[in-house]
């Protein structure tokens, strides 16, 4: 037993000191970060657009966009992420030489957008209608009222749930290893299969620590934003 632990500890140290392994891990981390960040930005933009379309009043101009947005959220939320990734990789972008990372960003961004849109919509609806009315009554345009008065207030309800969505997104990117992409999770698989480690124990633990650190960092950032937003609540 002591022997096992000692050797385990040795392998642990080895991963963090051997530049070869470190390079592998950071290469995987870089890809995980790029996909997460890209998908988060895309998801936020898509989510914002979809949420705004969904809160528009129903009339002959909005009926088609509203229907499209409804189908989008229903389909995306109703099918597994892994399947969506497969469809994007092997059907939609089955083009030789098309960068896989872009496909991944698109797949995760489109997926994330569906969830984010619901969070944003809930946030926008949580702001009292009187705020919009007051803005419009002063002669402000609908967009000026939305961006300067409603959205800043909606942020308070939006940020925790959207943040949650991003945390889930970071971890979900691990399934890109299923289409053979080189991310953090893939690194753990490669290392585990290598002669030197020949076990999942140490590589998966180390990679888990990296994910944990990443998520913890994002959590801290969300908390910071939340605190700043609550400034106008102080009594």
């Amino acid at each position: 037993m002591t022997n096992f632990l000692a050797s385990g500890f040795g392998l642990f140290v080895e991963i963090f000191t051997n530049s070869e392994y470190l390079t592998m891990i950071f290469e995987g981390l870089k890809n995980t970060l790029i996909i997460s960040l890209g998908a988060a930005v895309l998801g936020l933009i898509l989510g914002l657009i979809v949420a705004m379309v969904k809160i528009l009043p129903k009339n002959k101009f909005t009926v088609v966009p509203k229907a499209i947005c409804g189908v989008y959220t229903t389909v995306i939320r109703g099918t597994p992420m892994a399947l969506q990734l497969f469809i994007m990789t092997f059907v939609v972008f089955a083009i030789r030489g098309f960068p896989q990372i872009v496909v991944a960003i698109l797949a995760f961004g489109i997926n994330s957008g569906a969830y984010v849109s619901e969070s944003i919509r809930a946030g926008l609806l949580s702001v009292d209608k009187g705020q919009t009315e007051a803005g419009r009554a002063l002669g402000l345009k609908g967009s000026q009222t939305l961006f300067n008065i409603v959205i800043p207030q909606a942020m308070k309800t939006m940020v925790p749930t959207v943040g949650n969505e991003f945390i889930a997104l970071i971890k979900e990117t691990s399934i890109v290893s299923m289409i053979g992409m080189y991310d953090l999770t893939m690194v753990s698989k490669i290392l585990a299969g290598s002669k030197y480690f020949a076990s999942y124990f140490i590589p998966t633990t180390v990679v888990a620590i990296f994910y944990l650190a990443l998520v913890y960092l994002v959590t801290l950032i969300i908390k910071l934003i939340e605190r700043r937003l609550r400034k106008s609540d102080k009594r």
Binding site: Q131, E133, A134, L138, P152, S232
Partner: peptide, 30 residues
């Protein structure tokens, strides 16, 4: 309509001050 509304002030039952802005910003924003 926006230019017309700018000529007509409105005061609401529930005040509807912009909660995300300080008093001075509430006033100067529009």
């Amino acid at each position: 309509i926006n230019q017309a509304r700018a000529k007509m002030g409105m005061v609401f039952q529930h005040f509807n001050l912009f909660n995300n802005m300080k008093v001075i910003d509430n006033m100067i924003f529009a």
